[in-house]
Simulated assay, not measured.
Amino acid sequence: MTRVATSAAELAELDESGLALCWEGLPEGEEASFLGALAGMLEKPELREAEVVIVPGALMNATYGLTGENAYPDGLRIATVTVPQDVRALVPVLSPRGLRFFDNLVTNNAREQHRLDGGGAPA
């Protein structure tokens, strides 16, 4: 099942869970392929039936105040899937494949926006 996030509260829930694995730029209609690839790579067959939450770039920008070169294209689709806790330990395997956890995405965007806004590197 796929649904589109429409509120900041939904993004806060994804962020706070620490278990929302995401892929930036998933083409429309590729959700089943995305889930199949995740299930195979992570050896978690249950992920084939997981819910994919699409986070539009415009919602990311509005929620987190992303602007300029740090903003996402409005129509970009960030696909998120909540994964089992033990997957969190696989970050070194996931990152080179372009997968990131949503909380990491939010933190890195905030750090970059702070720099762009003239704040320098956060303490």
Rank of each mutant, 00 (worst) to 15 (best):
M1S: 14
T2F: 00
T2C: 04
V4H: 02
V4L: 06
A5D: 04
T6H: 04
T6V: 11
A8C: 06
E10V: 06
L11Y: 01
A12W: 00
L14R: 00
L14D: 08
D15K: 06
E16N: 15
E16T: 15
S17D: 13
G18P: 03
G18L: 05
G18D: 10
L19K: 08
A20V: 08
A20E: 13
L21Y: 11
W23C: 05
W23Q: 15
E24S: 14
G25M: 08
G25A: 03
L26R: 08
P27K: 02
P27V: 01
E28Q: 13
G29D: 05
E31T: 00
E31L: 00
S33V: 12
S33N: 15
F34Q: 09
L35G: 03
L35W: 02
A37S: 14
A37C: 13
L38R: 03
L38V: 11
A39T: 12
G40F: 05
L42Y: 06
L42R: 03
L42N: 07
K44I: 10
E46W: 12
L47Y: 07
R48S: 12
E49A: 12
A50T: 09
A50C: 10
V52L: 06
V52Q: 04
V52N: 04
V53Q: 01
I54G: 00
V55Q: 02
N61R: 02
T63D: 10
T63W: 11
T63I: 13
Y64L: 12
Y64E: 10
Y64F: 14
G65A: 14
L66Y: 01
G68Y: 08
E69L: 06
N70R: 08
A71S: 11
A71W: 00
Y72E: 03
Y72A: 00
L76D: 06
L76G: 05
L76N: 07
R77P: 08
R77Y: 05
I78M: 11
A79M: 08
T80A: 06
T80W: 03
V81A: 01
P84Q: 03
P84Y: 05
Q85L: 15
V87M: 01
V91T: 15
V91A: 14
L94M: 10
R97S: 07
R97W: 12
G98N: 09
G98V: 12
G98F: 11
L99G: 00
D103K: 10
N104L: 13
N104S: 14
V106C: 14
T107A: 15
T107H: 15
N108Y: 09
N109K: 15
A110F: 07
A110G: 14
R111S: 14
Q113E: 11
R115F: 13
L116C: 10
G119Y: 00
G119Q: 06
G119S: 09
G120T: 06
A121I: 12
P122G: 05
A123F: 07
